[in-house]
């Protein structure tokens, strides 16, 4: 279109300006440098407060909707659910059911972690072990543990061993994979520093590798826990170990059959609360005391 304007012939030079030095005014004269935030700003900054407000809003919505629907068989009100929960915890079997579930869970979780520790030890000490773990994890990680339940029932019968088997499966691979990843990610400098102090073998693993890989290990433990918890509740839906001592999942199934829907809601509430307690309280506390304090994780 238009002709390109040629660059000015004279080359630009920066203008020469006079130099100056000045003394900065004392700080106290300056305007606002820092001030405490207001109470409202403080509250709005607290994640717990914001999320608590959302929970309260949801509870109100639940209550309003359920009262309006007025069909306790399909959708009990919040107050009915809470009183059923209170009843179940104080007088009923709910507490016993929770106990049964947690006991199975802990057994499976502990066995899973122990096996993961053995596999990982083997994996860091030899290339064959590393290949073995990588292959096994690649195969079994995508396989939902609950899919193994029919097989577990065939092998171990209707009982705790079947439940433990599926939990071990759900914990083992997540923990082993994360721990191995963590170990492999420990920086060369930290490894060399550890060797420099004359650390070898078990002491080297315990004093250098495990703490250095702890962010990864902890995330493995969290994933393992989440898998195990979901798997166990699902597995318990299929059968109660015996009519007297089933777990929380069995409680849900039983109450649904008896059309005590408020009890079902109470049971579900328990599942949520326990999940939250472990994930939000136990793991969060461990995190705050360890990797966050050490600056190994942000946020």
């Amino acid at each position: 279109m238009a002709e390109i304007t040629p660059l000015p012939v004279a080359r630009l030079s920066p203008p020469i300006r006079p130099e100056f030095e000045r003394t900065t005014p004392p700080v106290s004269d300056a305007a606002e440098i820092e001030r405490p935030l207001s109470l409202w700003e403080h509250l709005a900054n607290m994640e717990g407060v914001r999320r608590g407000a959302i929970v309260v809003a949801l509870m109100v919505a639940w209550q309003v909707y359920a009262v309006w629907l007025s069909n306790p068989l399909m959708f009990p009100t919040l107050t009915d659910t809470l009183s059923a929960l209170w009843d179940g915890l104080v007088h009923g079997v709910l507490l016993q059911r929770i106990g049964a579930t947690l006991q199975v869970l802990m057994t499976g979780y502990a066995i899973g972690i122990a096996l993961a520790a053995m596999l990982t030890t083997f994996a860091v000490s030899s290339r064959l072990g590393a290949d073995l773990l990588a292959t096994l994890t690649a195969m079994f990680n995508p396989l939902p543990a609950i899919a193994l339940l029919p097989l577990a029932l065939l092998w171990f019968g209707l009982g705790v061993p079947s439940l433990v088997f599926v939990i071990v499966h759900s914990v083992l691979w997540a923990v082993a994979l994360n721990t191995l990843t963590g170990f492999l990610g420990v920086s060369e400098t930290q490894r060399l520093a550890g060797q420099n102090y004359g650390l070898r073998g078990v002491r080297y693993v315990a004093l250098i590798l495990i703490p250095a890989a702890f962010p990864s290990i902890l995330s493995g433990l969290k994933i393992g826990w989440a898998f195990a918890w979901r798997t166990l509740i699902a597995a318990e839906l299929v059968f109660g170990v015996s009519s007297r001592s089933g777990g929380l999942g069995w409680f849900l199934f039983e109450k649904r059959n008896q059309l005590e829907t408020d009890q079902v809601f109470a049971g579900l509430t328990c599942v949520i609360i326990i999940g939250l307690l472990v994930e939000g309280l136990i793991f969060r506390t461990i995190e705050a005391r360890t990797i966050r304090r050490w600056g190994m994780s942000r946020g």
Binding site: Q190, L192, A193, P211, A212, F214, W294
Partner: peptide
């Protein structure tokens, strides 16, 4: 082999144990 009679100071800042 490595030993504590020869202490090493590395270039990387992550030679300290963050924990």
């Amino acid at each position: 082999g490595a030993g504590p009679d020869r202490m090493m100071v590395f270039q990387d800042f992550d030679q300290l144990m963050p924990w």
